[in-house]
Design a protein around this nucleic acid. Structure first.
Ligand SMILES: [Mn+2]
Ligand SMILES: [Mn+2]
Ligand SMILES: [Zn+2]
Ligand SMILES: [Zn+2]
Lengths: 133, 133
DNA sequence: CGGAGAATGATAACCATTATCAATATCAAC
DNA sequence: GTTGATATTGATAATGGTTATCATTCTCCG
């Protein structure tokens, strides 16, 4: 059981009341702007503790870890290589095929992460416009 | 077109003649032990250049990037959380569902990475044995 | 040959994250 | 409420993978 200190509660509340994928820095900055200033180390530790407890979840991007609400349940992500935007999806066929792949190899799956990279709709509209100048 | 210098050729040869997922450090060390000593910055730059040219491919793990032969074509990975071992697989159903997911969202997919985490067969055997002491 | 441009290598810088450690906070038992 | 064991905080140092810098060297082409 996590000790829900005021600091951790502040982190959890902010994440729960938003729909973003936060990194530690952004979270610390946003909390600071709202009068809840906490040390960056505390943010990192709090995030780890909350994730351990299953109260939040995370995705590991190339450069940093990003945290989001856990109440949405598991899903995977589309990451725009132009603007960094992150969209979500969950495909049951993909999920079950993964189970199958692991089972076939006697591999005890504990988790997975699927990232789809590309250009989001709004970014591909933008580049279409600039072509038509 | 990549300039295939002796340093880059050495990197490429080592990767092509093995079946591992190398990180930059391992590669530099192994090359050094075989009389092909090159600066670590050169290794990083060489790997990036070779990957750009499509001569090698990589996977981004949480802590570091790992490189492997490109002639195996695209595939995804099972990563053992006990021993770090990396197994490979390719599932056409998963691949095509990904295309579909992206298409449905008007997301122009350029690539993806699927990592399945868990305990490999040999590690789960090991922990079974230790239970039977 | 001569010179523009690219690559190399030693090393500094970067940046996300973790470790350290003294100061506080928390909680249970008295 | 006081006390003490234990956990958390926060400032800051350290870590580790990777990139930037820059002087030197290589390569290619005219
Ligand atoms: Mn998400
Ligand atoms: Mn592979
Ligand atoms: Zn975008
Ligand atoms: Zn293993």
């Amino acid at each position: 059981m996590v000790r829900l200190t005021v600091q951790r509660q502040a982190i959890l509340d902010l994440i729960n009341r938003s729909n973003q994928h936060w990194d530690a820095e952004e979270l610390a900055r946003c909390l600071g702007e709202n009068g809840e200033q906490l040390g960056i180390a505390t943010v990192y530790r709090g995030l780890a503790a909350l994730e351990n407890a299953g109260l939040i979840q995370s995705i590991q991007l190339a450069d940093k870890k990003r945290y989001e609400r856990a109440d949405k349940g598991h899903h995977d992500h589309l990451v725009c290589i132009k603007c960094g935007d992150i969209e979500e999806f969950c495909d049951n066929k993909i999920e079950s095929r993964q189970q199958q792949v692991a089972q076939d190899r006697l591999f005890q799956m504990t988790g997975h992460q699927l990232l789809i990279f590309g250009v989001c709709q709004s970014c591909s509209n933008d580049s279409q416009e600039s072509k038509n100048l």
